[in-house]
Amino acid sequence: MSIVDTPVPVAPAAPARATARLLRSELRLVFGRVRNLVLLAGLAAVPLLIGTVLFVTQSTPVAGQGPPFLDRVTGNGVFLVFAALVSCLPFLLPLCVAIVSGDAIAGEASTGTLRYLLVVPVPRTRLLLAKAVAALAFAGAAVVAIAVVGLAAGAAYFGVGDVVLLSGDTIPLAAGMLRTLGVVGYVIASLTGLVAVGLFLSTLTEVPVAAMASTVVVAIVSGVLDALPQLSAIHPGLLTHHWLDFGEFLRLEVDASTLLAGLAVQGAWVAIFGALAWSRFTTADVSS
């Protein structure tokens, strides 16, 4: 009997299981790549660097000097997490997001592997979603790495204790840890908009570096515009405007509306650029 007479049994796995397998493969690709691991290690080194400098010089910065929270680090190691996040948010974290999200589609297109994924077949929408989730997971891993190393280095150098909030009130360390978790979650959520932007730019080109660089430029331009008082009308909608609002977690009464405003802005950027990426990727000719 020939193969023609007996079509290859095609038993599609449950979509959920197929998606899980695809996602696992994407995660392995992103987290297995040496370049990305070096990037993670570099980001994780930032809190270590800050902590070491403060520890070695034994000088407590004056409040208001240097990045926010820096003056509190020597008093309580927990603050090294916040100081490191503040230091990484303007450039290093966007860079990290840009590299992974910009590479997502353009990288596969430049190696030509995209056409082979699509003829497997992997549905384009599902592939785009998996790419988005993997890029976000990497951004999340970067934030977590900064937090974990920051906490460890802070504890080792300066010890940790009850957390003195911005208002001057003190909360127990356990509650402080919970708020730190909130900070990490908020910072990760703050990066979702940029992931969507990077993914969209990644669908426009077969040159991954171009998509990565443009994504970084978007984040930097957003920061520049945010600094121009003449443009205060558009500030609330800017991609990066609410990024540092994670300090809200360090007030006695956390103002949910401030945080929700930041999340809403990210949601809007995700919706717009996610839709653009989807409409572009699901209709474009794959000629790479």
Binding site: V8, V10, T111
Partner: peptide
Amino acid sequence: LPRVGALVEGPAFH
């Protein structure tokens, strides 16, 4: 497509 094997414009892998 699962029943179709293809080589398109040369091989491409990671």
